[in-house]
């Protein structure tokens, strides 16, 4: 079976002050119809650029290599009507900052009916009735009143629900959700996620779900991909991600995050800061921050390595380290310093 979305060897460079800067390197991903794929990474890792490339919304002058195939068709070969249909019908986006994607002087009703009138050529009356139905579908009470309101009259959570309503209105086959809940607090996030899940089940849409929250990805996605410096460093089932990570970076993220049920003496922070693809050193991009790094890691860019049935990793040490990444931490307190020294020693043996 071919996947609905297939990204292969995708490398993207963007023009910055007269030179091309790499933002994505050799990215592969596959998403089947109706499934949810998580895309996790810290800021600058290339999550939004991946989504924009798939949606063909790259800035002018972008240099793209590799393939993006939707339902078997090369997305970068689409022209005219086919491209319009792809962008306005097949794929649909939900953004982090819903407010920035609305027009402050236009009512929610105009915003919702516009897409229906232009894309589906629906008469105005019918579009309004449909809009009311859409809002009711995402659990918004008193939809008639909401249609007359302006964006600033709606809370962030409510606005995000309207955005979801708008993006499912055209019955897309793929939703690209770029951190749709990052700006929301936990209770509102839970509401928005439950609506997204219900819409997805109802319409059978696939979702590419972007987040920087490993736990959220683990809870709502089938598979998850971890990006670092514009590269895929790990892919596996989401539920396994924080139990048995396949890359030291993922493991370090799991450990650096505080826990709701436990206060750590000291958090095992990751030294340094996340790098972009453009700044990444030769060899493994994570090596400078990795407590398992060896000379060999710095020599060549590792390729994606299959780990049995479980998933894949861009870490040459993984066959050796598998299952032990979470056994010790990189924290600076005494106990774990000993453990870390042990681990380092063991690692060099």
């Amino acid at each position: 079976m071919t996947a609905l979305l297939n990204v292969n060897g995708l490398t993207v460079k963007l023009p910055v002050m007269g030179e091309l800067r790499t933002v994505l390197r050799d990215v592969d991903l596959e998403l089947e119809a109706g499934k949810t794929l998580g895309l996790v990474g810290e800021s600058g890792s290339g999550k939004s650029m991946t989504v924009r490339t798939i949606a063909r919304l790259l800035p002018d002058g972008a240099d793209v290599k590799g393939h993006v195939r939707f339902d078997g068709a090369e997305v970068f070969d689409l022209r005219g009507e086919a491209l319009r249909r792809y962008r306005a019908g097949d794929v649909s986006m939900v953004f982090q900052d819903a407010r920035a994607h609305t027009n402050p002087v236009r009512r929610m009703g105009d915003f919702l009916t516009e897409a229906l009138c232009t894309n589906d050529r629906m008469p105005r009356r019918a579009a309004e009735a449909k809009a009311i139905q859409l809002l009711a579908d995402v659990g918004i009470s008193d939809p008639e009143r909401r249609l007359r309101q302006y964006p600033h009259e709606l809370s962030g959570g409510l606005l995000q629900r309207v955005m979801i309503a708008a993006s499912v209105a055209v019955r897309p086959r793929l939703i690209l959700a770029d951190e749709p809940t990052t700006a929301l607090d936990v209770t509102t996030q839970a509401e928005v996620m439950s609506i997204l899940a219900r819409m997805q089940a109802e319409y059978g849409m696939a979702v590419l779900f972007i987040t920087h929250d490993l736990e959220l990805a683990g809870a709502v996605c089938d598979d998850t991909i971890v990006l670092y410096a514009g590269q895929v460093v790990e892919r596996q089932r989401s539920t396994q991600l924080h139990r048995d990570p396949l890359h030291p970076y993922t493991a370090a993220l799991v450990q650096a995050r505080p826990e709701i049920g436990h206060r750590a003496r000291r958090l095992p922070a990751i030294p340094g800061h996340p790098t972009t693809a453009y700044e990444a050193p030769g060899g493994c991009a994570f090596a400078p921050r990795c407590r398992f790094a060896q000379d060999a890691c710095r020599r060549a860019v590792p390729s994606l390595l299959q780990i049995g049935e479980q998933g894949s990793t861009r870490c040459i040490r993984m066959p050796d380290l598998h299952g032990r990444l979470l056994a010790t931490t990189g924290a600076g307190d005494e106990a774990s310093d000993h453990q870390r020294a042990d681990a380092a020693e063991e690692a060099t043996r």
Partner: peptide
């Protein structure tokens, strides 16, 4: 956090994503 007494505190805690999380049940 471990033993919340108020329903709202429990809602806050249960809203945090984790294994087997079911946002629709909140």
């Amino acid at each position: 956090l471990d033993d919340p007494h108020h329903a709202y505190t429990r809602l806050l805690r249960d809203s945090v994503p984790r294994d087997g999380w079911d946002p629709a049940s909140l």
